[in-house]
Design a protein around this nucleic acid. Structure first.
Lengths: 223, 223, 223, 223
DNA sequence: GATGAATGAGCATTCATTCAT
DNA sequence: TATGAATGAATGCTCATTCAT
């Protein structure tokens, strides 16, 4: 029926963070689902599609997950958990300076979205295909993460390091930079993941500190 | 059957820019499709869903569009066209200063995403449900728009107004701020659309000019 | 999934006649199947349902029966055998008087249907879910039983004790009284199984002897 | 898969009472379903079976009924309604004598079960495959009918025409005679439907009046 | 005897779409 | 333009059963 359809993601093979899910058929199912859900969406992927990609009968999936929805729910849960725990770990490593803390959070946020773009897309877009019940755990984790960043930003403001035109919009902009990575970025020699993280850290600091007045003197990339 | 699902958008009623499509059943179909595709996705919306929301029989839609895909294609085309022509118009009004030009582009980009969030989401997410053939016109327009912004930014850099750590990432960040608006923003008295545009203009300038050194002295919002 | 469904039987726990099947997993399977087949029918019961009720995996059943059909076949066979042998035993105890014989047959028929209602239902309704091959042994036994009753009735007619308006219909009515017991009867203090048997014996005699002429004088229950 | 299976019913073609359902595809579906549900049971009949017997695609059925369950529910409802209204009509024709009334009720009960055996079987056996919600209307009608018969019998007892050993069991026996008809009876020249009704009326009167004492003198059928 | 993963057919139902009216 | 009945493919899922362990 449908002619050649565009893939949402540039990146090729979908991978799950190594220790987030144990090896085995269950993990294989999750990785295949990740690939397909990221590129065609949850509703654009059939159980038969998944089974075919796994070289399994559709019915075999039901020994591992009670429904297609539960596969998505698990991906969304894992994605949120990996993200939240990475943020927490970054914060613990960062010391007490809110600028350092913010940089650490942005770095981790960027690295995760650049390293696991499929998971990022599924977590951010396909969560809306979940019932309220199945989405709830992930949404709770998400709210925690937002609160974490908010707290750091607010401390930075209180200590005179940051100055925001509007808190909600600025926080959203900070998040958006990361969230959109899967749609344009592909790791390359010119811009490996770490370099992208450096750029995003720099951009984040620009967002949070006021701009210079007038024209710019110093050297910076022009190309 | 399926339990309550989250809606992707905060905003309520989906609307199409006034003169983008003439009044009539055809426009009604597009607006209903806009609402449903934005909230449930193209694949998550059936022709029956659309017909029910229109108080029509499914077969009646085929008097107006040759297929469900063509409804989406039309929405995507209209969305891209409205966006591109608004950018062009803004640029014409902005004079020759690249800073003014950039501000005008960001303002329009922001206002459109805040005013037509459903259209923005469909244009940005559901385009991937289109065949290459049907998506092509929109993708061409999209490329033009990107080139437009790129040109302005590059002129700003050349004239010493802007300084970017990485052109691709910074352009992406500029775009991302707007693209993510439908996911968090709702017009309100505290932050009406124009004020949001002001904020995004300010944030964009921060991204494009270097940050101040050291801590911040001047007054800024704290809340 | 499926909403609450009515149960065919009033009675609670399904039991098999004590010595009809030796204790063990095989018997447990038969009793669980009896319960489920009686209430939801053979086609309305899945092997998974049976396994779940047994706290076993579906595959475990196949160590005891070659197929789901064979479980039903065994229930049907046991039910018929218990019934037929009880009829034979009753006849042996009853002496030579066809009235006594008929009463004995009816009593046993009634007691069995009242005591093992699940088995009665499965034997009478679910036999139609069996292949001709698997149903054959039971049908043979059934024919024997019918012949037995027929003989007794015919002797009663020949000896002037009974008078039937139509042999087929009357035999069917005799049988029907018992067969329908599981659908309405539940043992109680007011009407224990033995009392029900007395009633059915009385009713059977009424069917087989002609009615009184005119109105009724003597005392009888009214309520 | 399944080998030759027995049919529950002797009778051939399933028919619905003429004016119970208007002509058209909807009626054709109901009649085919009646045939299949009666012989193989609701759970033993697939929508594909029904569609094949109708020379239709399975999906076409869903233009007429929202689900397979609703087809059964409609059959069960129609069956109950036809039965109840026939009983009411019979009673209106019968005059004030409880004996006449009872005879009229039995006659109608018998004629319906003999004329529409498929419907009788579906109504009596397959109602248990319905959810409580879908079964409710039919069960309500059923209770009314029972109350009707009960009232007639009680008046007969009060006026000294009837004498019952046990009201519940006797009512059940009266009903059972009719309910079991589809399992053994086929209209024939020797015993057409009307003759069967005569026999059942006679048997019913025997059940409700006491038996003669001692052996039988008068002439009666012997065969 | 029992498990758990797997099979392959089949389930009720929904899909986008067509067509005669 | 719109309807209502129909199609044929596809949907998510369950079925009875097998088999290696």
């Amino acid at each position: 029926m449908s002619a050649l359809r565009a893939s949402r993601l540039r990146a090729g093979k979908a991978t799950l963070p190594p220790s987030s899910v144990p090896e085995g058929t269950r993990r294989r199912i999750l990785e295949v689902a990740l690939q397909l859900f990221a590129n065609r969406g949850f509703h654009g992927t059939s159980v038969r599609d998944m089974a075919k990609a796994l070289n399994l009968q559709p019915s075999a999936l039901y020994a591992h997950f009670p429904s297609k929805d539960h596969v998505l729910a698990e991906l969304v849960r894992v994605g949120h958990e990996v993200h939240a725990s990475a943020l927490r770990a970054a914060l613990l490593d960062a010391g007490a300076d809110p600028v350092d803390q913010l940089c650490a959070l942005i770095r981790v946020h960027t690295v995760l979205h650049a390293t696991y773009p499929h998971l990022a897309v599924v977590v951010n877009e396909e969560i809306y295909s979940l019932s309220a019940e199945l989405a709830a755990p992930a949404l709770a984790i998400r709210e925690e993460a937002r609160a974490l960043v908010l707290q750091v930003v607010e401390r930075g403001v209180a200590l005179g390091h940051f100055s925001l035109p509007d808190k909600g919009a600025t926080l959203a902009a900070l998040s958006a930079m990361g969230v959109r990575i899967p749609y344009w970025y592909e790791p390359s020699e010119q811009l490996p993941v770490d370099a992208l993280a450096d750029v995003h850290v720099e951009l984040s600091l620009r967002l949070l500190r006021g701009p210079r007045e007038g024209p710019i003197a110093g050297p910076a990339e022009g190309a």
